[in-house]
Design a protein around this nucleic acid. Sequence first.
DNA 1: TGTTTTGTACCGACTGGTCAGTTCAAAGAA
DNA 2: TTCTTTGAACTGACCAGTCGGTACAAAACA
Lengths: 228, 228
Amino acid sequence: MSRPADGPGEDRGTPGGEAEEPPAGRSGGPGAVRASGGRRAETRQRLYRAAADLIAEQGFAATTVDAIAERAGVAKGTVFYNFGSKEALFAGLLDHGIERLAGALAEVARGPATSPVAVLDALMLAQLRFFDEYGPFARVLLAEMWRAAWQDAVLRLRTSVLAVYERVLADAVAAGELRSGFDTGTAATAVFGMVLTVAIERRALRPDQPVEDVHATLAELVHRRISP
Amino acid sequence: MSRPADGPGEDRGTPGGEAEEPPAGRSGGPGAVRASGGRRAETRQRLYRAAADLIAEQGFAATTVDAIAERAGVAKGTVFYNFGSKEALFAGLLDHGIERLAGALAEVARGPATSPVAVLDALMLAQLRFFDEYGPFARVLLAEMWRAAWQDAVLRLRTSVLAVYERVLADAVAAGELRSGFDTGTAATAVFGMVLTVAIERRALRPDQPVEDVHATLAELVHRRISP
DNA sequence: TGTTTTGTACCGACTGGTCAGTTCAAAGAA
DNA sequence: TTCTTTGAACTGACCAGTCGGTACAAAACA
């Protein structure tokens, strides 16, 4: 093997790691860390988007790395340079999406304090809008959420997304708007799953229906406005 | 091959078809049809169950026919003898499950006529119980429901399962329990997705919690009993 | 009655193709 | 100079589907 002198076989520089940051030259050069101010980040974004699109259509296993690279407009080698493996790319995609969703919901929850029911409403709308914008990600999440392989991601989903719902429901209990003893954990999952399902269905089957209409229906379902 | 004169190459007996019934000897021998009293049907059942288990864990593409055959305790050839292809096996599995679920819900809807809200309650409980019993199928359905490849099955799901929910919601509108103009289609999907998600979550994370408790939470969420 | 034929159901080694991941020299960017 | 990307060839594992063949029960026949 011709490899010059790169240390014992194993892998060469192998940059693709978990790190969101660039690999950080092991030479410790100080300036090197911040590195290519965003070129690499942009490549990763493109790969995330391409992967989400394809995996939403075909599933993880059926989607080839070649196809992802082609759709993203990069060379196959770039995928492995950036992520190291197909699985790591996917794990990164899940994390990235969950983080954004959690951010969107947390922002709503931080908003001007009104009644818990109003906040719940706003959360559902925010989730609906998020999945409307990132439809492929919604499908990927739905399909892969319960696979044992990605339990880490599911855990993050629970602690960062479902927790927002659960907190609001707990507030509602505290405010006397829900019976005390109400199972806020199950209800949080229920609302999340409801919104996720409807968001996907709307995109797939009724793209013309305004998100706001769908949201109104869900709001009516979930609280007392149900009554005529 | 010893088969006498079976026509030009193409496929030989190629039994694996859609038919639920045995292929039925073309010689028309009357007794032959009932054939080996359900042996084949039982093999198919075993294959359905094995496929559902494995696909729930790993997804369709990642599940090999070899693995399905092994888990079912049959030879690989038998899978192709019975279904013709991996895809056809999966399509059969979806159909089979949807048919059973639709049957369970339709039976509830046919029951003694009470208020629409009570029927909605009963439907949710029935769906919860069904997915509790056929957990792997629930996960398969959730994960694969939106893939373009299985649109036929989704259509059947809509016309035979979601329609039951939609009808009850329409009854509720007619009975004045919901505002007229309420979007029963979206709401039906919402309820279905909510129950599906919660059923999977319960099985995966809280297997000890009684289904009835989960149902009570959902019931409170969905209609006016929400109020303290 | 015993024997032969027929068709169903199943078996499992084998094949042809596919794909994740590797390697590497060279070019572009910062 | 160093980091990042390119592009194309290569490998080794893996897998859907095939096909020659077996087992067996129920006709059909003698």
